[in-house]
Computed example of a mutant assay.
Amino acid sequence: MPNNYHKSALLVMDVQNGIVSRIAEDEKSLLPFQKAVEAARIHTIPIIFVRVAFSEGYPEINPHNKAFSALSQAQGMTISDIGTQIHESLHPEPSEPVVTKFRVSAFAGSNLEVILRSRQIDTLILSGISTSGVVLSTLREAADKDYALQVLSDACLDPDPEVHRILTEKVFPRQADVLTVDNWIHSLD
């Protein structure tokens, strides 16, 4: 794995209040995310936070979308809602963009690709909640867009530990280097 991190970006995806409160067992679950963000800042690797949120009235949600149509009925997850804000333990700095997406993949309906192209990013380091949601969808789309990929396995959480294991051990390695946050940090030094 080459140390060409000057064209890399760390994506911290869906680590927002409404999702963290449902998936993370406790505050310790977020330590790998915090460690990755701190390392990226030390090594001046751009960090892009990604969240899922919808406009008031939910015009982006189609009733046929099983994953999101229930949200419009529950009246949550709007752009200004506390549930869509990045978790306070990972507070973005002013220079770190917060991208809003409208579907599962970080690319879907967002300005992520414009930001990546403007910064000439060719390698994405993925972290997020959940492994079977945003991480899987973003990895697949990013691979199709020819990005080099790394997945920080312990900075990904999923409600189903077995699904997380299968994805990180069997599926993701086909398209990405999968490593722990500590191993990633070591590769930067």
Rank of each mutant, 00 (worst) to 15 (best):
H43D: 02
S137P: 03
N3Q: 15
R51Y: 00
T131P: 05
G57E: 08
K7Q: 15
M1L: 11
F107A: 00
V134T: 13
S8F: 00
V37M: 11
V181T: 15
R119I: 03
F33I: 12
V15P: 03
K66E: 12
D146S: 11
T78E: 02
V163H: 05
S80G: 13
R165W: 11
Q16F: 02
F54P: 02
P97F: 07
V20Q: 01
S72K: 14
V37W: 00
V52P: 00
S29L: 07
Q34D: 01
L30E: 03
L179G: 06
S21P: 07
E88M: 06
T180E: 06
I42V: 14
L90R: 01
I45T: 10
E60W: 01
N183I: 04
F49L: 04
I23N: 12
P32N: 08
L139Y: 00
F68R: 01
G83K: 08
L167N: 06
E93Y: 13
I129F: 05
P63L: 12
I86M: 02
F33V: 07
G83E: 10
N65Q: 13
K28I: 07
V114C: 12
H186Y: 09
R165E: 13
V20G: 04
H91G: 09
H6C: 09
G76V: 14
F33T: 01
A155P: 01
Q75P: 00
Q75I: 03
S8E: 07
G57N: 06
E56Q: 13
V181R: 05
I48Y: 11
D154E: 07
N3M: 14
V163I: 15
K35Y: 09
M13K: 07
R117H: 14
D158N: 10
V20I: 11
S130A: 13
H87R: 03
Y5N: 06
S21L: 10
T44W: 07
L124K: 04
I129K: 00
N65T: 09
R174M: 15
K101L: 02
V171R: 02
Y147R: 01
S130K: 09
N111K: 06
K28W: 03
D81G: 05
I61E: 01
R51G: 11
L124A: 04
